[in-house]
Amino acid sequence: MPQSELAVEARGLVKHFKSRRSVTRAVDGIDLDVPRGAVYSVLGPNGAGKTTAVRMLATLLRPDAGTARVLGHDVVQDADAVRTCVGLTGQYASVDEDLTGLENLVMLARLYGFKGARARRRCLDLLGAFGLEDAGGRQVKTYSGGMRRRIDLAASLVMSPEVLFLDEPTTGLDPRSRNQVWDIVRVLVADGATVLLTTQYLEEADQLADRIAVIDHGKVIAEGTAADLKRSVGRGAVELRVADTARRAEAIGIVGRVLGADATAAADPYGLSARVPEGSEHSVAQLLPALADAGITVPEFSLGQPSLDEVFLTLTGHTPDDAEGAGASRGPTTAGDDRETDDRAEVA
């Protein structure tokens, strides 16, 4: 087996879908370098080309141009070698709903070459590890959304793939099921697997991924760690609340002086915030002592990096949920995003 430092290596990958009238440039020249043992996230809005890219890497689609290698095997020339070492979980549960959970796994185990008792034993272990031992004898169509996603993940792990492709693994899941999927991904990677996951949730990429490729309209528009991407838009911001609204103006003055930047009052009569300018990260630590010296009580203080929402907006000119990038809808969409993030924070 050819050795390679990269688990996945794509160069100039292109896939265009032609219909009678138009050509959809689903993937329009993508380069990817996924290091072994990493969680790599392909982040983009609906229709950005994420699924098409993953389907090419998993040998389900033939690229129109460009090359891709998985663990050194070419996805076109050496497709069967790729298939032996990758697992795939699609956007939709790709298990047979009419069969039971156990039957689904046993079928796959046999197709991978496990025989008789060994196949069954392995599948029972997997069901147990995924908390599905009681549901193993039931038809998958009776499963809840979270259980389906887990049986689907278990199905991808029957062969212990070295590279696992997860196409939007948490889309449509409730926060609890989503956390379970995240935990599974972390265990797999801690165990040496490489995971390439696509997502339209910035939070998910932020939580899980070692590196992120942001794609939009079939092209990679940014690549790096979550921190890299955030840095590209600024150093973050401090937000604080004062106990006494009468002293807010004074606090704004102090914060502005310490950070060397303009602090602004928030809509909340007790709140204020300020961007941390380049080069004054060290001043942040002096904020609280300075306020305390002035006798201003600060019950809430937070220092946040810019969210990936902001990153996406800066890079693409539109927010992730706004696939067409219509500038006019930017305001309302951003507001919607904030609400969604708030909801999640509450549930979590």
């Binding site: 389907r55 998993a58 040998t59 389900l60 069967d80 070698a81 298939r83 032996t84 990758v86 697992g87 795939l88 699609g90 956007q91 939709y92 549960a93 790709s94 298990v95 047979d96 709903e97 796959l108 197709l111 991978y112 199905a155």
Partner: peptide, 12 residues
Amino acid sequence: KGVFDRFRSLPI
């Protein structure tokens, strides 16, 4: 339903 995608991703 997507089951065929799974089959097509198998080395069989």
